[in-house]
Amino acid sequence: MTPGRGDTAGPVVGESVHDVTWELLGTAFRITCTSNEVAAAIAQLFEAFPKVAGGPASAKRYAVVDGCERHGHDRCLHATTGELDVSGPPGVALAAVLTAVNEAAIDAFAGLAVHAGVVASGSSAIAFPAPSGTGKTTFAAAGLVAGFDYVSDEALCVDPATRRPVPYPRALALSPWSRHAVALDDIAGIELGDGEVAITADQIGARTVTAPLDLAHIVHLQPALDGDARGCELTPAPRGEAMTWLFQRSFNHYKHPTESFHLLATLARKAQAWRLNYGDPLEAAALLRDRLG
């Protein structure tokens, strides 16, 4: 069977010329595409993850098709999975693939996953749990600029066997505002539509963590509202509150609530908890580097 044809839910048209499988959080993702341009972009987006040879049958499959005869467009891309059928310019399809793969990777992860940005200094991880749209990715990028190593801009993932965080270093998707806030306007990232650009830790000049970590610090980000140019303040917080921050942002504790509860308590007991008030993410990341790095 031609990869990407016949076993996916939506319309997939054209021959796939690129066929690569990556492993994210223990799940294999086989991504096929027909365009050299899209293939290069996908390779860059997933460069931090190990490749899997042979495209195992258990892999989740995605297809990005360029030049869609079905729609008669010169450039019409589809990212097709069981739940996804996206047409549009390359960036839209790439963003859709990134979103779908991310959601599937988190959903299939056997351990506990908490919505958080994570950076590291040596083997010590610093997690900042937060929901979408609150500056988590921006702060992760600022952390890399400040000299931290990259773990994730999306999730604190805790291995169920070792009870230690493992890296999930997906590409950072930054809005124009975010790029400007962390002085990364000049990096040529991959366009994802609506002005959003994906960049890698390597492009920022940061190292990507590949080994399990120890969760040393849990930081509650409290960014200022737009226009509030207050300084930075890092203050200790009770560990019990940190447990609340982690649990509130958990993706999957409901699957094993009691085990997750005890695991999060263990993590909270071993870590130090902090509140970080800030206006400028770069200044705040530098403060974190000085105090916790």
């Binding site: 009770p238 560990r239 019990g240 509150e241 447990m243 609340t244 649990f247 509860f261 005890h262 007991r269």
Partner: peptide
């Protein structure tokens, strides 16, 4: 389910899976 985190006690509600942290 309860567990202690420093001076706090964390509680897990059995039905809602909601966590409560007591000061």
């Amino acid at each position: 389910v309860e567990t202690e985190v420093d001076e706090s006690i964390a509680l897990l509600h059995p039905d809602s899976s909601q966590v409560y942290v007591l000061n």
